[in-house]
């Protein structure tokens, strides 16, 4: 991998906790690397694990699903379902040889702007260490 390699991280954030936490990071003018691109969903429960597969196919080097801490879900249970589904998909991806550092989940509450920064920094560092994702990336992207 070249020194200039900048990883591309696709993140799915729930509206009520992690997206708000990322907003708070902004409001607090916390600085973090720009490699993370956020897609807003209302709840991590909405995140179909196949989104992760799709993101890897479409050029993501690392993915993140982030939601409310257990028990704090705005919809009560969404993050519990998300956690179970994510667990299965993470195991599956690792089993076929995807580096575990590319498949991430975090709990970031609306008040954890600082934690969001920490998560992003860790992911970017890990992604730089693991290098560009090539394993089953689409060659020609057609959208």
């Amino acid at each position: 991998m070249s020194k200039d390699y900048e990883p591309n991280i696709v993140a799915f954030l729930c509206n009520w906790c992690s997206y708000a936490g990322a907003d708070l990071a902004g409001t607090s003018r916390v600085q973090y690397p720009p490699n993370i691109n956020i897609i807003r969903v209302m709840c991590t429960g909405r995140v179909n694990p196949l989104f992760l597969v799709n993101a890897f196919q479409q050029g993501a080097d690392s993915v993140l699903v982030s939601g409310c801490h257990p028990g704090d879900c705005h919809y009560m249970e969404g993050n519990f379902y998300a956690r179970r589904r994510f667990t299965l998909m993470k195991e599956l991806l690792e089993f076929i040889g995807v580096d575990p550092r590319r498949v991430n989940m975090s709990w970031v509450s609306a008040s954890e702007g600082g934690k969001f920064k920490d998560v992003v920094e860790k992911l970017v560092k890990d992604a730089k260490d693991t290098g560009p994702f090539e394993q089953f990336r689409r060659n020609k992207i057609n959208w």
Binding site: E6, V10, I39, R46, N48, F51, A55, Q58, G59, W143
Partner: peptide
């Protein structure tokens, strides 16, 4: 499907965020 958050509305976002690295 969830209105305004359908698979067909989210997948293009993933594609865009992935393709333009």
């Amino acid at each position: 499907q969830q209105r305004s958050f359908k698979d067909r509305q989210i997948l293009p976002q993933i594609a865009v965020l992935g393709v333009l690295r």
